[in-house]
Design a protein around this nucleic acid. Structure first.
Lengths: 132, 132
DNA sequence: TCGTATATTGTTATAATATAACGTTATGTA
DNA sequence: TACATAACGTTATATTATAACAATATACGA
């Protein structure tokens, strides 16, 4: 069986829903909202999310246990992700900065470990919240 | 009341336990292990962990929902953290690299957001696991 | 087109992680 | 002492995620 090219029914439904949101969504909020489309159980959502994360269509914001659609067209595989997170309004933005990604992808320390993947989360106040 | 200088009883017990482990610990595993010292409920552990994270004595490994003692003496506040995580043996090491921390602390993109904090997690295979 | 392997689905139950809400006790400082 | 804040203890519950099992769908080589 070759590597999957097309998304399955459930995967499409979940991706669709996450793409329409412009903020990270919680798994159970996704579940609630796709129930009218036939996904009844948490596992159906989690399985779709797992796959979508694996192929890079969706990223998980680890510090928030939430999922957001990839906005980064060249992010075919989700192995190098960076986000900014506003600690006031919780707005999350995917950072697409080639210098940063180059720097981190090539980063090596003295541990003898070669990194194949990273996830970076920046926290602070977004423009709006800073000016309040 | 001035800013807390000394740890409370529960905070000491939890920190002590986490420091003795050389790997990240899960909250409920900490709970189980400190029950003989009088902490009976999850909340007692979580409250101590929250405080210890806040003052930088402990870091949370977000992708693993686990807690590890800070090995970085100059990491007084836990606002700039980086870890390497072996995806095979789950060994976690705190990265202490001044170039990296300088680069990330000064990082700015075009979002108008000034970051006050970051957390970076690298994934890969550690030396041992790579040679298997 | 049949056989086989893998991916996906559906379902119920349950595990693992974390917080709400309440009242009490301790501690620092004016 | 009086007040404010921090920490504690306790019960209940919310939130996040996976185990286990059986069925169906899809890709692809023989």
């Amino acid at each position: 069986m070759q590597k999957q090219q097309y998304l399955s029914k459930n995967q499409k439904i979940v991706l669709d829903h996450v793409e329409k949101a412009n903020q990270p969504l919680k798994a159970y909020s996704i579940l609630y909202n796709v129930q009218k489309k036939g996904l009844k159980a948490p596992l159906q959502v989690y399985r779709a999310l797992d796959k979508l994360v694996e192929i890079g269509k969706i990223h998980k914001i680890e510090s928030r246990n939430a999922f957001v659609a990839c906005k980064n067209s060249n992010c075919l595989v989700s192995n190098a992700t960076a986000f900014s997170i506003c600690e006031s309004c919780e707005k999350v933005t995917e950072i697409n900065n080639s210098k940063l990604s180059k720097y981190l992808s090539n980063f090596e320390d003295n541990s003898g470990m070669k990194y194949s993947k990273y996830n970076l989360e920046f926290f602070g106040l977004c423009k709006k919240c800073k000016n309040k």
